[in-house]
Computed example of a mutant assay.
Amino acid sequence: MHWSSAAALALVAPASALLRFGCSQLVVERTDPLVNPGVAPSPHLHQIIGGVRHSDNRARIHTDTYQNAFNISMEAAAGDIAKKATCTTCQFSEDFSNYWTAVLFFKARNGSVHRVPQIPNAGFEGSNGGMTVYYMQDGLVNYQQTSKVTAFKTGFRMLIGEAMYRNRAQASKFRQITYTCLKTFGTRYPETMDFPKEPCNFGIMSNVRFPTCWDGKNLDSPDHMAHMSYPESGTFEGGGPCPASHPVRVPQLMYEVIWDTRQFNNKDLWPEDGSQPFLTGFGSHGDYMFGWLDDSLQRAMDSPCYVNCPTLKSQSISAMNQCSVPTVVDEPINGCKWNLVSCSCGA
């Protein structure tokens, strides 16, 4: 898949643009149309947010690739998902992109494994779980946001992280995936590559930062990563240059997910040997399929938008929560014991 246009690749004029917005959950199930297209159930559980065509027909929502926005296949040939979707769980109603992350599990002392629920971030109370999404011209340390960026294009998709990683040495490849122990609900530092070793008063925040340099041609790649790169030297936050192989600077896409670990804070539930009870942390990852309507994201990146953006249309949290999709994988996900692949209730 390629996108090429010398004129369109021209970088935009600097503007102070940083978008921060909440998205409610669309569905939590074993679906992964990026890595495991057409597979239901996919090998592991995801929580998914973003756009979909609202319908009561469960089969069509998930299997009719050419008529729906979100489904189990999501072939690039299906076209512009923003033109197929009719609602989105995200605050900006022109954003029909789909975003998803791995799900967190807690392994209790008795060996049972339980899914950890998500709660909305500060400022988005009332939304149905989900996560907070950022699009930045620069990292959060630069509040001026003056760098030039080119918005993603129709059909663009990418992945960061590896679902099968199980130790810190493996996960060190993705140092941009971090965790914060929330001592208060407003805690944001420090960020670590390891899960907290002690109970956190207000839960655990996972942070997922995607690469910021694009090769300017491929909308995807076989591993969903090779068409993207982090800066050649330094960091995105420090304005590091893009490598010659990936010369086009794109927005820093970032997810914040708050896991409500409070119900697991009793140390009597934790392993007696003091080992880490939260599973698949090193396998944390984020997936992205671009779906902004027309040029709305580029307009926002070209405008003086800081969190709120007058160039974009917004919707209420109630409207975000009302956008939903029936599950295609018919299995319970709450109140069950998991083995990380499937669950059994009443066990």
Rank of each mutant, 00 (worst) to 15 (best):
F156Y: 15
M158F: 14
M158E: 15
M158G: 05
L159I: 05
L159Q: 12
L159S: 05
L159D: 08
I160E: 13
I160R: 12
G161N: 07
E162N: 12
E162Q: 10
E162P: 09
M164N: 06
M164K: 14
Y165V: 02
Y165M: 13
R166K: 11
R166S: 08
R166G: 05
N167C: 09
R168P: 02
R168Q: 12
R168S: 11
R168Y: 12
A169R: 13
A169W: 04
Q170R: 08
Q170H: 07
S172I: 05
K173F: 13
K173H: 07
K173N: 03
K173M: 09
F174T: 07
F174N: 03
R175K: 09
R175A: 15
R175C: 01
Q176I: 07
I177T: 14
I177P: 11
I177G: 09
I177D: 05
I177Q: 10
T178Y: 06
T178R: 13
Y179S: 04
Y179W: 14
Y179P: 07
T180H: 00
T180V: 15
T180L: 01
T180G: 00
C181G: 02
C181L: 11
C181Q: 04
L182G: 00
L182I: 06
T184A: 09
T184Q: 11
T184M: 05
T184Y: 07
F185C: 00
F185R: 08
G186F: 13
G186K: 04
T187F: 01
R188P: 02
R188S: 06
Y189W: 06
Y189I: 02
Y189L: 07
P190Y: 14
P190R: 08
E191R: 15
E191N: 13
E191T: 15
T192S: 15
T192I: 05
M193R: 10
M193C: 09
M193D: 07
M193N: 13
D194Y: 10
F195C: 00
P196H: 01
K197D: 03
K197H: 12
E198Y: 01
E198A: 03
E198V: 12
P199H: 04
P199Y: 01
C200W: 01
C200P: 00
N201E: 15
N201G: 06
F202R: 10
F202E: 14
F202C: 05
G203R: 08
G203V: 02
G203L: 09
I204H: 00
I204R: 02
M205E: 13
M205K: 15
M205I: 03
S206T: 03
S206K: 13
S206N: 13
N207D: 13
N207F: 11
N207E: 12
N207R: 14
R209Y: 10
R209C: 00
R209T: 13
R209F: 15
R209Q: 14
F210G: 00
F210N: 01
P211Y: 10
P211H: 04
C213M: 02
C213T: 04
C213H: 08
C213F: 07
C213W: 12
C213A: 06
W214E: 02
W214H: 09
W214F: 05
W214S: 08
W214T: 08
W214D: 01
D215V: 01
D215L: 11
D215M: 08
G216E: 01
